[in-house]
């Protein structure tokens, strides 16, 4: 098993975000459809469809998750955040019917992460969203685990293609466990190997030289 000395900051679990995690920063860059419930003076240039000086009340626009989260207040009405369509009733029935057929990479790729973040905004549909997220994960987990534990020395790109980011990380750790076990069985566990970081650097150097 290769030991890695670079351990990136883990993304947060559930509704939590981890401040330094690169994954969480990219997750919160996802755009959400919102409707303003108050005017934003002198920021009209953020909304490209109009050339007014202000953003008037009731404008429909797309804002990144971090901005919506920062502006949203429970007591005061500043923003109304709408659900992205994969979390709406129509898609929820699809997920509940068979979670294995959907391509979560195309719909996300942060399907679970963004879904959990949506729970920060008060909406009557929240319990249903949470339930669907959980059931989707449970429904797909068996298959993810099974394929990651049994694809040895194979091209895994077809298996990983349709997975969400969270599932991909699980798949990867399953694979590293499988590879570690196999190399132990073959008596290679005590073999010293070159660091993958060094090897990657060398590959890139060769690629740089070639025109």
């Amino acid at each position: 098993m290769d030991t890695q000395s670079y351990l990136p900051v883990e993304p947060g679990v559930g509704m939590e975000e981890n401040y330094f995690s690169l994954d969480d920063i990219l997750l919160s860059q996802e755009r959400l459809p919102v409707r303003t419930e108050t005017a934003f003076p002198r920021l009209g240039f953020l909304e490209r469809s109009s050339d007014t000086q202000d953003i008037p009340e009731g404008t429909k626009m797309e804002l990144p998750l971090w901005l919506s989260k920062g502006l949203y207040e429970k007591k005061r009405r500043v923003l109304a955040v709408e659900l992205p369509k994969v979390y709406k009733e129509g898609w929820r029935t699809v997920f509940n019917a068979d979670p294995n057929v959907v391509d979560l990479h195309k719909m996300g790729p942060y399907y679970y992460g963004l879904g959990s973040q949506m729970l920060h905004f008060e909406s009557p549909e929240n319990p249903d969203i949470a339930q669907t997220l959980l059931q989707t994960f449970i429904g797909r987990f068996r298959r993810t685990m099974d394929s990651s534990q049994n694809a040895y020395n194979e091209d895994t790109s077809a298996l990983v293609e349709r997975l969400d980011c969270l599932e991909k990380a699980l798949f990867k750790s399953g694979q590293s466990g499988l590879n570690g076990f196999q190399s132990w069985e073959k008596g290679q566990a005590s073999q010293l190997t070159a660091s993958s970081l060094v090897l990657n650097y060398r590959k890139r150097k060769i690629a740089d030289v070639q025109p």
Binding site: L43, G70, L71
Partner: peptide, 19 residues
């Protein structure tokens, strides 16, 4: 509201740069 929006952006930039 506009001040708050800009302030959120400042905090966001701070988070990205620190990370």
């Amino acid at each position: 509201p506009s001040i708050k929006l800009r302030h959120t952006c400042l905090l966001r930039n701070q988070r990205c740069v620190s990370a």
